[in-house]
Structures are given as structure tokens and as C-alpha cells.
Nucleic acid binder design. Sequence first.
DNA 1: GTAGAACCTAAAGTCAGGTTTAGGTTAAAG
DNA 2: CTTTAACCTAAACCTGACTTTAGGTTCTAC
Lengths: 151, 151
Amino acid sequence: MQYSIGQVAKSTGIAISTLRYYDREGLFPNMERSGGGIRRFSDREIETLGIIECLKNSGLSIKEIKLFLDWCQEGDSSLQKRRDLFYERLAAVTKQMEELKKTMNTLRFKCWYYDTALTAGTEDAPRNLPQSQIPEDILACQRSGCLNSLG
Amino acid sequence: MQYSIGQVAKSTGIAISTLRYYDREGLFPNMERSGGGIRRFSDREIETLGIIECLKNSGLSIKEIKLFLDWCQEGDSSLQKRRDLFYERLAAVTKQMEELKKTMNTLRFKCWYYDTALTAGTEDAPRNLPQSQIPEDILACQRSGCLNSLG
DNA sequence: GTAGAACCTAAAGTCAGGTTTAGGTTAAAG
DNA sequence: CTTTAACCTAAACCTGACTTTAGGTTCTAC
């Protein structure tokens, strides 16, 4: 199947200007054009968009993604480099997830904190509550979160 | 305790220029200065840095964080707004985690893909492998990942 | 064959989140 | 006192990832 840039934009939610920008950056090295110069996205490009999204979410820049796509063009001689890249990305995302869990725990603590404050009508309520009166699961959030103290 | 900007930079890993930038953006509304105009970070500011990190990781911009810190200055009258913000952030991070899980699954699939390719010496190996020969857990990654096809 | 929608390029613009520069001032140590 | 490391400001600069603009071309439908 072939798709126009407008169709791809519509179905993926990626702006036309972004698709053209990606093309300009060399992320679709094999994309075809009509006689008149109009882009014809194929399933190959749609798949590339999936890889771009994945690698972008894993923390790579557009330039780094371009590098990876260059390796793909080189064929089997670059298999090792490509493999290593994905293992490295897996590690990076694993770390990112750990970070996000800490963030979640801080947020959960804050939600409890403000719920308590709102119920009492004042922030002094949670602020002055003795540790022993704070639910265990909230204390756990606080311990594993990114804040050192209450507030 | 009071700390110089250099001490804070060293102990948090945040660049001095970034700390000054945050200050310029109004993220430390109560920070004191020495007679000569030198910043004196206190535990309050250190805690604020923790909140900044948390909210930044949750997807807020510096300007949005500044808004939240303004609310904090307003006292108990802004409790509701602040509570709502944290619940909203909790939802946003939950969503972000879901996304990251998909990314992880795609990466895991790719790791298997390239391991298989390297063992065989060619990408054709994983590419031509019938579904029935792909481990179930890898298929599951593929299904829940962000890619539609192999490759 | 002509109207209008959809496409094209190159180049400039935008925005966030910093960092760097230039030219001083402060403060702790000898 | 004077040195020197650490600090200060304002303003300019930078980078990444897009988006917008301006002016032109192609394609589809009548």
C-alpha cells in the first residue's frame, strides 16, 4: 500500500510538517516519490515511524535515530551495533521506569498530603501529623519518593 | 542549615547556571541573600528542588511549576488547586508508564530479533522465522509494543 | 482546461530549557 | 591589606525539535 503524506498524518496523528522534517533529516532513506515529486509513503515508512517513536521514547535524539537507520542500510555487517543499541536502550528505559516510580510515589504522597489538608482546611494538618498517624503505604511512598521532607 | 550555590550544585548535581536560571524564573520565592547579595540556600530551597524535579519528571514545564509555587505562597486558599494538580500529575505519570511499557516491549522484541539475527549471521533469520517458532513471551512483547510488523 | 485541494521547497521563526560571556563584587585566607 | 576563589547580573547565545511562511507545482474532479 501507498499513502500520501496527508493520509499518514491523519492516521498517525503526526503533523505533516513533522513528517517532512523527518524526511529532511533522512529518516526515510528509501521513500519513493511520484513523477511530480510527491512523497509516497509505503508500509516500510509506516514501520519506520514505529521505530522512530520507540527510539524517541527511549531517549534517543533524531540524529541518533538517523544513525541507527543508516546502520540498517548497511545490511548484516552492522547487526552487532544495532543489537547493542537496543540492549543499551532497554537498560536506559528500565532506569527511566525506576525514576518514574519514584516520581509516582512522591505524587501519591502529595495527594495524601493535600487530601488531609483539604479535609482539615489547613496545610498544618498533614504538616503536624506525627509519623505514627500517617498510613503505612503513604510513608512507604514518601521513603521511596524524591522528597526529603514533608511539605 | 544554609548552603552556597556551589555547595548545592555539587551535592545535587544540578549546574550552578541552572540553579541561577531557576531562581531567575522565580522558583525560590523565599530564598535569602547575604548582605552582599550572595544566595543562601536553606533546607526549604533544597526541598523545593525535590518538588521541581518531581513535577518536571511528571511532565510540567518550568512555567507551570512556577505557577504551582505561586499557589503555595497563597496559603490555604489554594489547597484545592494544588490537590487537583497532583491528582492530574498522578494520572499523567500513570499514562507515561503505560507508554514506557510498550516501548520496553518493542525494545525486548528487537533484542530477541537481533540476537537471532546475530546467531544466524543474517537478518533474514528472524525475518523469515514462522510465528510458531517465536517464543511466546517475545510474541507478547511484539503484540503490546508499538510496532506493527517485524523488522 | 480550469478550479481547488493537496502537495512541494527553502528559509526563517519559535519555544523550552538551559549555558556562556563579559564585566564586575564579595568574602575567606594569609 | 591583598589575593583569589567563589559569587553576582544582564544579555547574548545555543540546541533540539519542530512549525510557519512564502511562493510555487501537481493532481483530481468537473
